[in-house]
Design a protein around this nucleic acid. Structure first.
Lengths: 219, 219
DNA sequence: GTCTATACTGAGATAGAC
DNA sequence: GTCTATCTCAGTATAGAC
């Protein structure tokens, strides 16, 4: 393998060492940056190849389609994010054993990793867009479902009086609240712009936890 | 004007009375239907003209662009929806005067009209998509801002101990919760599919009201 | 197995005849 | 106001260089 790279370095097709073997990463990096900045459909593959300095067809060789490229961009980031969520949840549950973890802790474990990953260029902003563009179905099932199931069972232990259906609906509401918090853009409302990740997480946790403790309906 | 229509009826260009003058409505109807069913970018102008039985260039004559067409589709529905919100809020405030309206009533006034308009083919589903595609900025300011300001001041009276900033953030969270509730698709989670509008409204009001009563942060 | 060059189909937009 | 023809650019597919 090292030999191949060495040989290719002397051909006219490749002007820099390594350019060939990191093509996939270069595409992913460029795609993540541009998707996050301008949205999925406003970003053309030709803009991505220009940023990544690769050939157009290389995208279809490595990913097959623009949609599949988006999936891979998300999976690359979502994997570590969901792992952090589960790690945090494990820790909180271990700390409170044999009691179940406090509701607030569970919510923190879910919310915080998502807010922190936002530091990378526009990833969660992208997630929010993706969610509402209806591009989620397959990607969600494969990469988020196990994590979601784990959190639902933790919630069920923390709130034993709530039915499964109630918890699923509230989890939806919580996801919506978080999603909008991460996508809130400075231009819509200047006052919401300058909020530190920690403050935002605190606001979210307070709001969501209280919602989970509310009765299912008021009737 | 009636004379003109009568005359045109005998030319070969127009085969039915009125086809010419309701072109704009036909386009709006078809666009609303298709945008709601398949999303904004998955719907082509050529599909819309096929459904509306008009010419492609007619869209650009009447609306200028696909984006502007989407704006008009939304505005046509959002106007009545926001009027219903304000009417409800007025009624609740009048009923409780001179006391401020109860928080739960305010939330109902906001949530219920949005859920009821959903009966029309996919309008709020469309709204959710639009929101996350970042297409909202201009349209939001012009058609939603007055209504939002009115609700914020009602919330301020109902929750006098909360700061303006706290209320704005919580309103964001509430909007996100509602938005996701309306876009939740049966295929993502079957259990959330068969929920009556009334039940959904009750769940949302319970969750959101409780979130508003929570402290700004837990610290 | 990777990448380049190029062509194909369908999109939104526009100009100008009527 | 409406229609035909056309423009540019998008995502995609393929043939072949290395």
């Amino acid at each position: 393998m090292g030999v191949q790279i060495f040989l290719l370095d002397f051909s006219h097709t490749y002007d820099l060492i390594g350019r060939m073997i990191d093509t996939k990463q270069r595409i992913l990096d460029a795609a993540e940056k541009l998707f996050g900045e301008k949205g999925y459909d406003s970003t053309s593959l030709r803009q991505i190849i220009s940023e990544a300095k690769v050939n157009l067809a290389a995208i279809h060789y490595h990913f097959g389609s623009k949609q599949e490229l988006l999936d891979q961009v998300i999976i690359r980031k979502a994997g570590p994010m969901n792992e952090r969520r589960l790690k945090l949840l494990d820790r909180f549950e271990a700390e409170s054993a044999p009691e179940s973890a406090a509701l607030e802790k569970i919510v923190v474990a879910f919310v915080l990793p998502a807010i922190l990953v936002e530091k990378s260029p526009g990833f969660v902003k992208l997630m929010g867009r993706v969610h509402a563009e209806g591009l989620m179905p397959e990607i969600a099932r494969r990469n988020f479902q196990p994590m979601i199931a784990r959190f639902l069972s933790a919630l069920h232990r923390a709130l034993p009086d709530s039915s499964q259906k109630e918890l699923i609906w509230k989890a939806h509401f919580a996801l919506g609240a978080m999603s909008i918090a991460l996508t809130a853009s400075p231009d819509v409302d200047p006052e919401t712009a300058a909020e530190s990740p920690t403050n935002l997480a605190n606001r979210l946790v307070a709001f969501i936890s209280s919602g989970f403790r509310a009765p299912a309906t008021l009737d």
